[in-house]
Write a protein that binds this DNA or RNA. Structure first.
Lengths: 108, 108
DNA sequence: GCTTTCCATCAAAAAAAATTGATATGATGG
DNA sequence: CCATCATATCAATTTTTTTTGATGGAAAGC
C-alpha cells in the first residue's frame, strides 16, 4: 500500500477514534440531529461538540445542512455504521472470551 | 451508549489510526509475519515497529507467538480486515465523487 | 560461557490532539 | 436596526501520542 493512502485511511479512523465522537455517531446512527440536540443529549460543551463535528465532517464522515438557526448533522457514509458494528462484534467476542476464561478457572 | 463502552471502542479505533499501523495490518492481512519482515518490509525503525505492534496487541487486534529467535505476529480478529475494507470503500466513493465533480466542471 | 540475532522496553524530546473560555458570525424576530 | 439564539472559530493550555536512541533480555549457535 502506498504511504499516502495509508495516511488518508489513518485520518479516517482517527476521526472516529474518540469516545465523544463515537457517542455522536451512535446518536446519529438512527437519523439526523441538530447540534443543540447532540451536545445537550451527550452533556458535552457546545464548543467542544462543534469541534468534534467538524473533525468528522472534514474527513467525510458527516455532512450537514442549515435549517433556520440550526445546523443539522447526519452520517454521510453508511459504511461508518458498519465499522462501528464490527467494532462491537470484536468487543463482544472479547467479553465472551473473558467470560469463558473465568468459567474455566471456576472449574478447577 | 455507556461512556465506558464508547471509550473502549475509541481505544480500538485509535489502535488502528496510524499510517504505519495501517500498513502493518495490510501486510498481515494475508498471513502472519515476524517482526523483522515487518520493519524491513515497511522501512520503519525496529523500535518503532515494536511499539506499534504492542499498541495493537494491547487492544486485541494482533496476537503473537515465538518461534526460536523470532516473534510472529498475526491479526487476531478478522473483523479488523473488514473494517479496513469498509474504509477502502469510503475512500473509493470519495474519489469517484471528486472525479464526477471534476467532469461536471469540465462540461461547463 | 560468549556472541550474535531478534525483539522489547525505557526515558526524553517532539509532535499532534483535546479542552477551555472568550469571542465571532449569521440567521431570525421584534 | 437591535437583540437573541444556534453554531463556529480562535488562542492558550493541557494531555496524549509518536519518535528516537540507548539499553536490556532471551533464545540459538559456536
Amino acid at each position: 500500500m502506498q504511504e499516502k493512502i495509508a495516511q488518508r485511511k489513518a485520518d479516517l479512523f482517527k476521526a472516529i477514534s474518540h469516545p465523544t465522537r463515537i457517542r455522536i455517531l451512535d446518536l446519529l446512527s438512527d437519523g439526523e440531529h441538530c447540534v443543540c440536540d447532540i451536545f445537550e443529549g451527550l452533556n458535552v460543551e457546545q464548543a467542544n461538540t462543534s469541534q468534534h463535528l467538524s473533525v468528522m465532517k472534514k474527513q467525510g464522515i458527516l455532512q450537514s445542512r442549515k435549517e433556520g438557526l440550526r445546523v443539522i448533522y447526519s452520517i454521510k457514509n453508511p459504511e461508518v455504521i458498519e465499522m462501528l458494528e464490527l467494532a462491537n462484534q470484536i468487543l463482544k467476542k472479547e467479553a465472551d472470551e473473558a467470560m469463558s476464561t473465568f468459567a474455566g478457572v471456576a472449574e478447577k
